[in-house]
């Protein structure tokens, strides 16, 4: 469980990234921070592994204030996946994945074996293991990034717009892959995105943020759609544009689902 207690963050240059933020992220669920740029979502994410230290308040992981923990050790115990994968360009794929294990003192052979196993888990062929990151496609690099985040079997996985830089088709693949992984692995995932569709797809708990880390609404995708807190949320999730308000129309005896703009999106089947 991750808990934010009255967190605030003002950077050295005076910008206030987060004003006052409190939230509990239950274990073994995916929480998605979603908002436009400047809403403080990445800052909130990076507080979990102390890449950013809050100016005020506390972050607790399993009821321990992480400010009391050694930064470096904390980071080694938490998986982190970032946009553009952030792979080390001078190391082969397999060594990139093994890095955290090696940092944790796992011996070379075991680190390699476990890395090969996790490459398979994320759906990468082992022939890619000896390639350098620049020889991989964007989607493959991102999978390596996920593999690296998972390899030490951390309880927590932080994902900072991990699929933001790949093309839409690959993004859908990776999203599906993540859902599958999460079914098997049951991690506590903190996911940051600016894409509300991605947030609704992946999140058990979705946190919609305004400027300065102000929470517009927290809830499951269904809760938010059922009862958007205000006009900001309504507009952000796209209810006012009509693409989320669906109704059924009869066509030759079939129930066709049509959205608010009159565009058919599917058919309704009896359960």
């Amino acid at each position: 469980m991750i808990e934010y207690r009255s967190i605030g963050k003002t950077f050295a240059d005076g910008t206030e990234a987060v004003g006052d933020f409190s939230l509990v992220l239950p274990s073994r669920t995916t929480t998605v921070f979603v908002g436009s740029s400047g809403c403080g979502k990445t800052t909130l994410l990076r507080m979990v592994n102390r890449m950013v230290d809050p100016s005020k308040g506390q972050v607790l992981v399993d009821d321990v204030d992480i400010a009391t923990r050694n930064k470096v050790e904390l980071r080694r115990s938490i998986g982190y996946v970032m946009q553009h994968a952030g792979l080390l360009p001078h190391r082969k794929v397999i060594d990139n994945v093994a890095t955290v294990l090696r940092l944790n003192g796992v011996d070379k052979k075991e680190a390699r074996d476990r890395s090969y196993a996790v490459l398979e888990t994320v759906g990468l062929d082992s022939s890619l293991a000896t390639k350098y990151p620049s020889q991989l496609s964007g989607g493959q690099q991102q999978r390596v990034g996920v593999a690296r985040g998972l390899v030490s079997d951390p309880n927590i996985l932080l994902m900072d717009e991990p699929f933001g830089a790949v093309d839409p088709i690959v993004r859908e693949e990776l999203q599906a892959e993540l859902l599958r992984l999460q079914r098997d692995l049951d991690k506590t995932i903190v996911f940051v995105t600016h894409d509300i569709d991605e947030a609704f797809l992946l999140g058990d708990q979705v946190v919609i943020l305004k400027k300065g880390g102000e929470v517009a609404q927290v809830g499951s995708p269904a809760d938010i759609l059922a009862a958007p807190a205000d006009d900001f949320v309504r507009s952000f999730v796209g209810i006012d544009k009509g693409s989320r308000t669906l109704h059924v129309e009869q066509r030759d005896g079939v129930d066709v689902v049509v959205d608010g703009t009159g565009k058919a999106t599917g058919v309704l089947e009896a359960r």
Binding site: R46, V72, L74, R75, Y80, H84, G86, N104
Partner: peptide, 27 residues
């Protein structure tokens, strides 16, 4: 050296010395 690579190394839990030795200097 790409700032993002260094950021990733730090996020993985490398100490500053390890970042220097294993990432920055080789690159």
């Amino acid at each position: 050296v790409d700032r993002q690579t260094i950021d990733a190394a730090r996020a993985m839990g490398m100490t500053e010395m390890q970042i220097l030795r294993k990432v920055e200097v080789p690159l």
